[in-house]
């Protein structure tokens, strides 16, 4: 469904991505982990052509999105929901208006239908009752959840989550993980999750990829991922106290 073909991206005079190639299947939850500043957000941005590869190409089904433009690009982007790392809500609109924005601008739903969908989305991320507040009046974690509600309110086929759980308390973080899992199971949403939080990744991911030095040094299902001998992955796992046997109770 999403395929990177030898993608190299130069930023700031260095190769942030270096001939990165991989493919994500339809209906999969694909998690990308890795240290800060390795290019996880950069990878996600390539999937919707917010960044264009220096070399190589990115494919969404049969379309080369890295070369798409105009209405062709719009058609591909309409299939995506994107949760940005900082939430990226518009400051002069209330939370509910932010979430309603893609519906108002891009669909012909009536105001009642939009209201109902917004309420559902707010409830799903645990923000019922906060719809009337402005982004500057709520915490960073709440902004992130509102951004998540906006990303899914349009019922996209593919959702890209940039650190959906960082900055959240553990309980809310698990709720969000569960939400990602539920959207994936019930609606068949293909999900790409960028995360620091390996525990969450191990619980929900179908495959986990570790990005270091512009490449995936390991791509495997959770049980194989925790058992790997790859040194970068091992030190990443050890730092989060995850042993070869995986999480307790997994």
């Amino acid at each position: 469904m999403i395929r990177f073909d030898k993608v190299t991206k130069q930023l700031g005079g260095r190769n942030v991505l270096d001939e990165l190639s991989f493919e994500i299947q339809k209906g999969e939850i694909f998690t990308i982990v890795g240290p800060s500043g390795t290019g996880k957000s950069v990878t996600l941005k390539h999937m919707v052509r917010l960044l264009t590869p220096t070399r190589g190409s990115v494919w969404i089904d049969g379309t080369e999105i890295s070369a798409a433009n105009g209405s062709g690009l719009d058609r591909v982007r309409e299939r995506f929901g994107y949760l940005f790392q900082g939430g990226a809500l518009l400051g002069w609109m209330s939370v509910a208006e932010n979430i309603a924005l893609p519906l108002r601008e891009k669909t012909r739903l009536t105001e009642d239908e939009i209201g109902a969908r917004v309420t559902d989305a707010l409830r799903a991320v645990g923000l019922e009752g906060d719809g009337g507040k402005f982004p500057s009046e709520i915490s960073g974690g709440m902004q992130k959840r509102a951004g998540l509600a906006r990303a899914i309110v349009n019922r996209p086929e593919i959702v890209l989550y940039d650190e959906p759980t960082s900055g959240l308390d553990p309980v809310t973080a698990r709720t969000i993980d569960q939400l990602i899992k539920r959207l994936n199971e019930e609606l068949g949403i293909t999900s790409v999750v960028v995360s620091h939080d390996l525990q969450g990744a191990l619980l929900i991911a179908d495959r986990i990829a570790m990005l270091t030095g512009g490449k995936f040094v390991e791509v495997s299902p959770p049980e194989k991922f925790v058992a790997t001998a790859q040194p970068d992955v091992r030190s990443f796992l050890d730092a989060q106290f995850i042993s070869k046997k995986g999480l307790a109770g997994m």
Partner: peptide, 21 residues
């Protein structure tokens, strides 16, 4: 500020033209 906070990018993903909007 909207640009560096990815808000313009968010509009583009939603296929809402920042120029028109």
């Amino acid at each position: 500020t909207m640009t560096v906070n990815d808000e313009i990018a968010a509009l583009e993903i939603m296929s809402i033209s920042p120029v028109r909007f």
